[in-house]
Design a protein around this nucleic acid. Structure first.
Lengths: 221, 221
DNA sequence: GAACCTATTTACAAAACTGTCAACATACCA
DNA sequence: TGGTATGTTGACAGTTTTGTAAATAGGTTC
């Protein structure tokens, strides 16, 4: 059998992670077989254990890489939105929403998280909230961090839902599968997010119960 | 070994499904072991195959039951909201949102769907959309079905996201884990849903591109 | 009470998968 | 050129899991 030439650990690890990520899209983390990854990466399966220690080690490494990539993409998109001229902001926010489902990485990130893989979710979310709040304040200086938090939560949950359910929920609701209709829903959502002002979000009970959660920028009403 | 007294197939099947559902909450559909279900149900594992044909048959049956139960709960809650007096509608809608995460059934439904189990998702969603549109029309006779569809989609995706991510996303965003804060977010969302009028939803591109999707009640602009 | 149906069980077969081990070979360095 | 560290592999062990087969016994019907 042809024996492969030695490569640096980094190169081998990346090749393994690439193969694992590609397979994960179809089978999910729980269905990920070390032998299948090895076959796809063109090597013998003990080599994977040599590099990652165990199957769980591989999955954790994959979760870390995928989560980090997704966060980088999203924060970059929000950053772009911050710099965009006013008339381009709807498109910019739409792009933020689209960015979260880039290729199959979003799906992979959620599946991995779902299966209990360790990743730095908290610090990633903190980056996203901070940037989002900057954006909202640039639109409306009186925007409260509490509402930013809630909006980020709503959007995050919806994106997770989209990623997880694939196209089936959309189809069940009569939305087509082509990209144009998907993009249109995201644009609709982006416009809502942009046009919602805090006075519409401060409902009867808001600002009374949960005003001291993470409102640590002195802005609470 | 003590041999169990015969029971009707219905009783046995239900006992098996109960055990499977309880286990699923922790391990997910992919991690569901037929032998573990049998142990929990207090029987030998071949008995499960006898009743459901195979492991996959069990999972499909579970998906069907869980999906149907969730749909019944949700439609009942929307129906209640329809009959509620105006001042009670925020609470009623809040209850609709809470209802979707009853016990662990919501989580089970999503996980099962995620793992590719067959279920009647489309007809279930149709029921929910139809009722929701009735509700919106009772608030605002000019409400368009297109916007109802989008709102249902947004909420559905968010609920799926919540169910899937458990509490981790909320914690990462600084929300506490106790019920009161969760309930508060749902109430905040309910008020937004109630207060959004169509003129706020008809954005620049709406009603032009996708006006002929499922707008089959003669209401399209 | 006899006969039949089937829910239930024990024992087993077969496959799949993870992780171990020892051997090999390649790259790098002295 | 020789030596060492380690990337890489084939073979294997042990475990786990699904599904099968045959036997047993509880319930039902006539």
């Amino acid at each position: 059998m042809a024996r492969k030439t030695h490569s640096s650990p980094e190169i081998a690890k990346n090749a393994i992670l690439d193969a694992a990520e590609a397979l994960m899209v179809d089978v999910g983390p729980a269905g990920l077989r070390i032998s299948a990854v090895a076959k796809k990466a063109g090597m013998a399966h003990p080599n994977i254990i040599h590099h990652f220690g165990s199957r769980e080690g591989l999955i954790n490494a994959l979760a870390e890489r995928v989560g980090q990539r997704a966060t980088e993409r999203i924060t970059r998109a929000i950053d772009d939105a911050l710099r965009a001229p006013p008339e381009e902001r709807v498109n910019a926010i739409t792009r933020v929403l689209e960015t979260s489902y880039h290729g199959d990485e979003g799906r992979s990130a959620v599946w991995l998280h779902l299966s209990g893989a360790e990743s730095s979710l908290r610090s990633n979310m903190e980056q996203i909230v901070t940037l989002s709040h900057e954006f909202r304040k640039s639109m409306d200086p009186t925007a409260s961090k509490e509402n930013t938090n809630r909006l980020v939560m709503l959007v995050t949950l919806a994106l997770v839902g989209e990623v997880v359910s694939g196209s089936s929920i959309k189809e069940a609701l009569g939305f087509g599968t082509d990209e144009s209709e998907r993009a249109h829903f995201k644009q609709w959502l982006a416009e809502i997010l942009l046009n919602l002002r805090d006075h519409q979000l401060d409902t009867s009970l808001s600002a009374s119960h949960t005003s001291n959660e993470i409102d640590n920028d002195g802005k609470k009403s």
